[in-house]
Structure formats: C-alpha cells, structure tokens
C-alpha cells in the first residue's frame, strides 16, 4: 500500500508539471494584457510594470521562474489587486470555500444515500415514486436557479435565513443546500439502483433465508456494497463542489476562492491564475488519491498494490 501511494505521488507530480506548463502557455497565448487600461499608459510606466512582474524576460526565463516559484509555493503579488499576495488570497478564501463545500457534500451524501435507500426499500411503491420525482427535479434544476429560488422565498419573503454574506452558520445553510441539490439527487439515483441490484443478489437471499432481520441485512450487508459507486462519485463531486461553487458564491456574496479562480482569468491576472490553478490541481489530485484509498476500506476485494496486479 505504501509503495502504491508513493507511486501515485510521483504521478501527481508529473500531472502537476503538465498542468503548470499547459496553464503557462495557454495564459500567454490568450490575447489580452493584465495592464491594459482604459486610460492609456505612458510607455515608461508600461515598461516598469512589466519589469516589476518579470514580464519583460524571454518566455523561457519566465517559464523557468514560474516552475521554481510554483515548486516553492510562492505565486507573487496579484497584478490587479497590487496590494494583495496571491498566497494570502488563497489562504483567506479557501477555508471559506472548503467549509461551504464540505457542508454541501455532507448534505449531498447523507440525504442522497438516505433517499436512495428508502426508494429502493419501497421499490415501485409511492415513496419510490416521490423520491424519483425529487431526484429528477434535483438533477434538472441548475444550482444557480435553486440558489435564487431559495434566496427569494426562504430569505427575502419568509425571512427565515439571511439573504447573503458569510457571518455565521445560518449564512451557510442556503448556499450549501443549493450547491448540494444536484449531487444529492444524483447520489440518490445511484444508491437506489445499486441497492436494488444488491437486494436481488444471492448473498442477500441467503441472509434472508438464514432469518437475519431486515435492518441488519440492509445496513450491514446490502448498503455497504451498494455504496461503492457513490464513493467513486465522491472524487468528481469534490471537484464539482469545490470549483463549481463560483456561481453560488456570487449569488450569496461569499468570500470564497471560486471568485478569484474565475475573475483572475478575465482580468488576465497571471499570478493569481497560476496560483489558483496549481492550488486546485493539488486539491483535486489528492482527492482522487484519497478516494482510491477509501475503496480498499469499503471493499476488501479491492487491494492497492504498487506493482502489477497478480489476481
């Protein structure tokens, strides 16, 4: 297992190098300039700006500097917000995005699995149909529509929640629900179908024949196997929740990282683009690794090996 993780870490490094390289060149190929301004700048100032950020060097020097700085984790000062360090921006805003993301993932997984299990247990009865309708709604309503609806009715009209901002737990409920609605519905569908498959499998019939009680069969045997696809889905879900929070953060004016990730690109804020991209890449690559490790915990049939499989 340790050699497996070591090997994966090497792959992660290679992937990081590819991502940094691709970002660097795409960024330079894209038209536009971070210092283009509505009021024309004297050439002396333009030059001095370029020199400050090393943009006057040939591309290979800039590329080398980027690689070294990325390795050191030092991304420099933002080109748009000249008083802000990219690292500070990430350090301040990521915990907020993570709180929101974890809360949304908790809602999505807990309620998704619950809904899916209930639907499977009452297969083709009214709870099943009700759950299916909810799931279809959840999947088909985009999160930003959900966010606006929740904000308008629950916050503005009924005054149950604050409208926007980030000043306490109450402020995070609506955005987390809005962010969770689609993945929750998806998890519910996944759980339902794999639960149905498991309840028809031989080992469950065997357990029934042995007279084991229904809750024990469902929770101890069937659900555990049925959750495998859900765990697989966790990695892309992390990606989606962490990076996809941009729109939700905007609607609820939450000071999260998603905003920097998107606006830095329109601002051509090179240092922030690089910083957020590298940071997200690390998070996502690690998330995938963790999910792979989780597999072995949940399903003992899967073993992690460093070398070739010899099954």
């Amino acid at each position: 297992m340790i050699s497996y993780i070591a090997k994966r870490l090497v792959y992660i490094l290679i992937a990081m190098w590819l991502i940094i390289t691709a970002t660097f060149f795409l960024m330079r190929l894209a038209p536009g300039n971070p210092f283009a301004s509505e009021r024309a700048l004297p050439p002396a100032i333009q030059e001095s700006l370029n020199a400050q950020y090393g943009l006057d060097n040939p591309w290979y020097v800039q590329y080398k500097d980027y690689l070294i700085n990325s390795a050191k984790g030092d991304f420099g000062t933002s080109m748009k917000y000249k008083y802000r360090e990219t690292n500070d921006m990430i350090a301040e805003s990521f915990p907020v995005s993570m709180t929101l993301g974890l809360e949304a993932m908790f809602i999505a997984v807990a309620f998704g699995v619950l809904i899916g299990t209930i639907a499977a247990l009452f297969h083709n009865k009214w709870p099943d149909y009700l759950m299916t309708i909810l799931a279809v709604l959840g999947i088909s309503i985009p999160s930003f529509v959900m966010a606006t609806i929740l904000q308008y009715y629950l916050a503005l009209q009924l005054n149950l929640f604050p409208i926007a901002g980030w000043k306490g737990f109450a402020y995070s409920i609506l955005p987390a629900v809005a962010l969770a609605s689609t993945p929750m519905a998806f998890i519910a569908k996944l759980t339902r179908s794999s639960m149905l498959e498991e309840t028809n499998s031989e080992y469950v019939k065997m357990a029934k024949a042995k007279g084991i009680s229904k809750p024990v069969i469902v929770f101890k045997h069937a659900l555990r196997n049925a959750l495998l696809p859900v765990v697989t889905y966790l990695a892309p879900l992390t990606a989606g929740v962490v990076t996809g929070s941009f729109v939700i953060e905007k609607i609820f004016s939450i000071p999260g990282l998603g905003k920097h990730f998107v606006t830095s690109i329109t601002n051509r804020d090179y240092t922030v683009i690089m910083g957020t991209t590298v940071f997200y890449a690390v998070i996502l690559l690690l998330a995938v690794l963790i999910v792979d490790i989780l597999y072995s915990f949940i399903d003992p049939r899967i073993q992690l090996r460093g070398g070739k499989s010899n099954d």
Binding site: T99, L102, K167, P255
Partner: peptide, 12 residues
Amino acid sequence: SGIVLAACNFGG
C-alpha cells in the same frame, strides 16, 4: 467533525 472544525471559519 471536518464540517464542525471548518465551521469555525465564519467571520463576523
């Protein structure tokens, strides 16, 4: 527990 910990990160 992750959420509870992270929830300490509210401003205000």
